[in-house]
Design a protein around this nucleic acid. Structure first.
Lengths: 191, 191, 191, 191
DNA sequence: GATGAATGAGAATTCATTCAT
DNA sequence: CATGAATGAATTCTCATTCAT
């Protein structure tokens, strides 16, 4: 009887995450994942029916972790600007602290490898984003724009910011994250 | 060099582009590329030493095409705001009109499949972007920010805009592209 | 030896019989046998050294059961015709009532999976068949034919009859079994 | 450009037939088939999409060969007894001369590995057997019996005879085949 | 130039068997 | 006795690449 969720299973998920981000799904043999995780090839298939299930599990788990981390600090009170800044900084910080995880989600969210079912399940964890978007649109504080763009804009600036700090780790600082928020956001509010 | 650089070679490059974008490099067998191009499997290797060379060629060619298309309209006169808007719209329009090509560059720019040499060569075609960034920084019209972020910001908003219009083709219009420019940009100028 | 030779062991043998008949030896994983028997995978190897020993045990046990069932009613008195009819009907009825067991013997008697030793041991249970064949040959009531054919003929008509009633269960009746005996046998006696 | 149907493809089918009969489908790795055929593993999959298609092809081809061989001599004139004897002897001789092929059909006709589609297609070649059965039933020369049994009886005695001569090759002779026919058949005619 | 049959290394997956608990 | 996690050899199948025609 092993501990909770089995150390080996966790080792496999960890190895898979790193390898997938570095090499892509198709260029990552299950044998390599197993070796990196320090288990036998058969063990991988003991925990995951097949490679696809491993990928799906990893996606769901990662997205859940991210969702929880962000929701933790999410404020329902305060000005819209303050709450957005908080949200932005939380997501960006999570992306900086969990670079593999963030790149994994970023790279594979639209990948055909992620089962449609898995993708839909994962979305549930971010329902609060939908809510805040609706609130933004309804607030009257935004430039006149249709909601579909707000969604894509939010995703875009999160990606942009995190990608930037990944490329330039020396620039990471509370001030710069605030600066980036200001630059990305200032234009979207009616001035 | 035969007359049209050989129709077969072009057919292979065209098929490869479409398949790579839809299925990724590793999930696209050379046999499938050849079939889709209407040539024999051996023919592909007649024109390209191996799969990697095909990928590199495709990357270089696509990036060159994009660079040329954009540089064509690039203005060296006018206000910075006007020139940026023009540049933004040209790139976004090119991305809308050449979705496969844009996604190919977007998806594989950071891919390990692209030889370092190839990537560096490709950058040359965008030297003018470096120039304009320097100009932006020096103009005093921007918020105070270090140049590395400007680069990543530009790339980010181009991606964001083109991704948005790819997801929502019904939103494509001259007005909306202007709107998106305004939203992305307004915050970056000193107000 | 525990009381009922262990219920688990019996459950394993039962599950194995059904699965082997339906799927063949090689297409029946020991894990599936264990699951169907409601025991853990390890338990199977607790009772049987390996898969081969399980198969051998099953073969021996099944053949013994069949032998016993038939010998039970075997008559040493009466006309040859009557005794043959009785034997035929007993075997056919056993095959009808124990279809899995009969198919198992039928399918795997000539299989290389059955150890030679096992096959030979199993034959002992049918010594009386050899006796009756000798008697048949010596009786003068048969057409002139060498004994090797009698053996194969007997086996053949048993198989033929049981296979027929397995394929057409609606035809099973005392009359039809008699009819089949008449058809198979009538020609073998001097008329 | 290789000759007709490619020697390699034929070599693969030949090797597969022999190995399947000796070892069964599941106990015959494709690698072994390839080695025995003297080709690379990839070559097998060049000619057959997968193992199943190889099996299906082999089944269809073998059944067709048998059907053609037998239909060749099939007589539509003469007494029913003479025609049946001719048919019986032709089938038995084919089985003796083509032991692997016959065992292959015998063993795998009811195997789940043979695709249903394949089995149905294969039956067409034996339609003439259905015709002769109808004729037998309608002739009034037979004991009163339902047609389903005739079918199974025919199959049964063919198998019985061929199995016998396979086990005892020293008994193969024109006389013995006639003898076997007499024994199997005599009972089925009204005397 | 062009073809496509042939190759064999490598990938995903299965499964009999072991062994610590 | 019983369990089931763990193993790794073996299996099916894929695919980049070669080469005789």
């Amino acid at each position: 009887m092993t501990k909770d969720v089995s150390e080996k299973k966790q080792a496999i998920l960890k190895a898979a995450l790193e390898l997938f981000v570095d090499r892509g799904f198709h260029n990552t043999p299950t044998s390599l994942i197993a070796r990196q995780a320090g288990v036998a090839t058969g063990t991988l298939f003991h925990y995951f029916k097949n490679k696809e299930e491993l990928i799906d599990t990893l996606y769901l788990e990662t997205k859940t972790k991210m969702g929880q981390a962000i929701q933790q600090n999410f404020q329902n009170t305060g000005s819209l600007d303050e709450r957005m800044r908080q949200l932005f900084k939380d997501i960006v910080k999570w992306g900086i602290l969990n670079p593999k995880e963030y790149r994994f989600i970023q790279q594979f969210s639209n990948s055909p490898f992620i089962t449609k079912l898995t993708r839909d399940t994962a979305l549930d964890h971010f329902e609060y984003l939908t809510n805040i978007i609706n609130e933004l649109v309804g607030s009257g504080e935004l430039k006149t724009v249709y909601p579909e763009f707000i969604e894509d804009f939010l995703e875009g600036v999160f990606n942009l910011a995190i990608t930037h700090f990944r490329r330039h780790p020396d620039k990471i600082s509370e001030e710069n994250i605030d600066l980036v928020f200001d630059i990305c956001w200032h234009g979207i509010f009616v001035t």
